[in-house]
Design a binder for these strands. Structure first.
Lengths: 225, 225
DNA sequence: CAGCAATGTGACAGTTGCGTGACACTCCGG
DNA sequence: CCGGAGTGTCACGCAACTGTCACATTGCTG
């Protein structure tokens, strides 16, 4: 779930935004001034910050700059002023998007999703699931899902699949697979074929026309995106 | 320097955008239809794509979806329609921002900068690709794409193509190719001709007037950019 | 423009690579 | 001790690929 912080001095607008966001499934918090907003973000960082430009005390531009000094969170400006100068200034200050009041909640949430899609969250240790269309491989959980359905695979098949999934779109030769999955240095390459065949029976709708686990004749196998 | 592709059917608007962007220091290219735009992006990827929603033939929404299938490039919609439905639909299709005509160039460039600032960290292990206009060769993935379409080639053809692609624009003699692709030290040079011929049937629109895989009479073959 | 060398191309037979079913063996849990 | 699941080996057959050749075509050169 996504947490949003709304910094906006007009109580009516702030509350209605909070309400609308919660209805859309966000967890929303509000602050009536930049000072309180900055404090709230320090205390409990949201995933996205909405900020008005016309604020008492520290104004919106300064608020954005201060946020940006320590935080990479996506910032969306919500302002009554539809003026190129303000828009440019806000974006230059570090905002990611700029909406003019009154805002359509649907548009706002669509823009939040777009922003989040492109988020620079660098999550270094997050590789819980490898996705290939409707095929999901989760090395951690040791399971394979096809269209959300759990597919029973054997240990060898699973390791083979993981090895291929670790290098999406890359061709691995039979020798490489023998080496990495079985630990063999050389050996009968047909072994790989057999296991690939068995795996296909399980994860391909039509195992004679594989969509994911693809043969590259003369080179090896790959898992296509 | 940043390269921008503008997909917009109205000549006046497209040209004035291109002009304005170039004045701002961008390198800008234009396309009047989605089809041409998609081809241009495949042939020579820009860093950002601007797209109109009302296009003849393939419309803007579909254009965005097709771009998104293979490309992570930031997409900004420029549309005459200021309608929440359109905005949401465009963003859901994969666009990153939406501007309503007439656009202020200063705002556009500010948004481009904001978008670029937040640029998505490149896909973890993108498969390297050698590009020759609309022809793409990916040695790692063991595949050849022509105008974004997968072209089936045999192992020998593929290795031949890779060898040529490794030395873009450089002429390789038949002997060199025999040596590097087949491992032969001397041998029938006609063998190379035959495979080049077969390859041309697959990757050249008109195999009697090759654009990529070019004969250099008396010397050998080269892959032209 | 004739002649020649270089290159393009279609056909074909031998070969290779791959998928698959059958089977034996091992490893466990009951 | 038995039975079932998982694994590795083998052999067979099909489809795809390869290399060779003969012949057509192209482009130089004198």
């Amino acid at each position: 779930m996504s947490a949003v912080l709304v910094i906006e001095d007009d109580d009516r607008i702030r509350l209605s935004l909070l309400l609308a966001l919660e209805e859309e499934g966000y967890s929303a918090a509000g602050a009536p001034t930049a000072e309180e907003g900055l404090a709230a973000q320090r205390a409990e960082p949201a995933d996205t910050v909405l900020v008005d430009l016309m604020l008492p005390g520290i104004d919106g531009f300064e608020c954005i700059r201060q946020l940006r000094r320590t935080d990479d969170v996506p910032i969306v400006v919500i302002s009554a002023r539809d003026d190129t100068h303000d828009i440019v200034a806000a974006l230059e200050a570090g905002a990611d998007d700029y909406l003019v009041k009154p805002v359509a909640v649907k548009e706002l949430t669509a823009r939040l999703r777009a922003l989040r899609r492109r988020g620079r969250t660098v999550a270094p240790d997050a590789v819980p699931v490898l996705r290939f269309g409707e095929l999901e491989v989760s090395p951690e959980a040791g399971e394979v899902l096809l269209a959300g359905q759990r597919v029973p695979v054997t240990r060898t098949e699973f390791q083979l699949l993981c090895e291929l999934a670790d290098h999406p779109g890359r061709v691995l030769s039979r020798q490489q697979l023998l080496q990495r999955v079985w630990g063999y240095d050389g050996g009968d390459e047909r072994l790989v074929d057999v296991h690939v065949g068995r795996l296909r029976q399980k994860i391909e709708a039509d195992s004679s026309a594989p969509k994911h686990l693809v043969t590259v004749r003369g080179l090896g196998y790959k898992l296509a995106r």
